[in-house]
């Protein structure tokens, strides 16, 4: 019973949040946005349309109906079904979903592997640092974490390029693969891997510091709790105090904070892909921004929102699964 109600309330919250965000997006893209997308599209595609054809296009894009409620409802359903129409300025006439689909894989592999690495390293270091607070490992990790936290992702990326591509030529400074040569099989994989090292390292380092700080402070909170003192009083060995009593409880709040920082990670990917000219969704969105292609920008916005909401839902469900108190409360 408790579990079901917890699930329903989380799903209800997700739905409400989505409604609010979609309304904000609708205001931005349909109400406040100056200019007419059909005119922009015709200008940049260079096609000559008769007035009847223009009217037909306006009808096809659903722009000839009242803004409220017709366009609002269309906007909602289109956003939720990933139907973003066609690009207006970068590659006029091509379906936005298709353009994203082609680039999604390259971004996903970068985001997923670097985020997982950052979480793993940050959490392990955070546990060690928090356990031996003010120790040598803690002091140095703390210093490094704070500098990494203070450094924009794109600055870190440029420093790595200067070091590893300009001073010593270990890795290429950008792109997804070498141009002018066609590698096949393993050689191609190695080539792609070499191109991915620096952007991957940038994202991993950039978020490692944050996760370190979060895990460390969460562990310190838990170590002050009475049940830790009780475990020690019972004579539990220090190793098990940490492993069985402290870490599992300290991990709980970390899950939520990691999910919340997912929105920032997506922002970081945008600038890092620009620095490394890495042809993923982020670089494409920056191009769309420069070309003011609002159909593409709308897709960027909606996909990021949905990714963040799903990450938060997963975090909430994991939290509820691991901590029964949350479910029954």
């Amino acid at each position: 019973m408790g579990t079901q109600r917890y699930l329903l309330s989380k799903l209800g919250q997700l739905f409400l949040t989505l409604l609010i965000v979609l309304t904000i997006a609708f205001l931005l893209f349909r109400v406040l946005l100056p200019g007419d997308p059909v005119t922009t599209y015709l200008r940049s595609s260079g096609a000559r349309y008769t007035p009847e054809q223009v009217e037909q296009l306006r009808h096809d894009w659903g722009l000839d109906v009242p803004i409220f409620p017709d366009q609002y409802i269309d906007f909602m359903t289109d956003s939720l079904t990933f139907n973003f129409g066609v690009s207006t300025t970068i590659v006029p006439g091509v379906s936005v979903s298709q353009l994203f689909w082609e680039r999604m894989g390259k971004s996903l592999i970068l985001i997923v592997t670097s985020t997982l690495a950052a979480i793993a390293i940050g959490i392990v270091l955070g546990i060690k640092g928090g356990w031996k607070r003010r120790g040598r490992l803690d002091n140095s990790s703390m210093g490094v974490s704070m500098v990494l936290y203070a450094m924009p992702e794109f600055v870190l990326g440029m420093i790595l390029i200067l070091l590893f591509a300009n001073v010593v030529h270990w890795f290429p400074s950008g792109q997804y693969e070498s141009h002018g040569v066609t590698y096949t099989g393993t050689a191609h994989l190695v080539d792609v891997g070499r191109h991915m090292v620096l952007p991957w390292l940038t994202l991993t380092l950039a978020y490692m510091g944050e996760f370190y700080l979060v895990m460390r402070s969460s562990l310190l909170d838990v170590l002050g709790e009475e049940y830790i003192a009780l475990a020690r009083a019972k004579g539990v060995r220090e190793k098990f105090v940490l492993r069985r009593h402290a870490v599992p409880n300290a991990l709980l709040p970390t899950i939520t904070l990691v999910a919340l920082s997912f929105g920032f990670i997506l922002g970081g990917v945008l600038t890092v892909e620009l620095v490394f000219s890495y042809p993923g969704v982020g670089l494409f969105s920056v191009d769309a921004l420069q070309a003011r292609d609002f159909a593409v920008l709308q897709a960027t916005f909606m996909i990021s929102v949905i990714a963040v909401l799903v990450a938060n839902l997963i975090a909430d469900l994991t939290y509820g699964y691991l901590d029964p108190r949350v479910r029954t409360a």
């Binding site: 949040t17 965000v21 997912f262 922002g267 945008l270 920008l297 709308q298």
Partner: peptide
């Protein structure tokens, strides 16, 4: 809603 908004995507839009 504002807490989970992916801020950079929101800000550039």
């Amino acid at each position: 809603a504002f807490l989970v908004l992916p801020w950079l995507a929101f800000a550039i839009v």
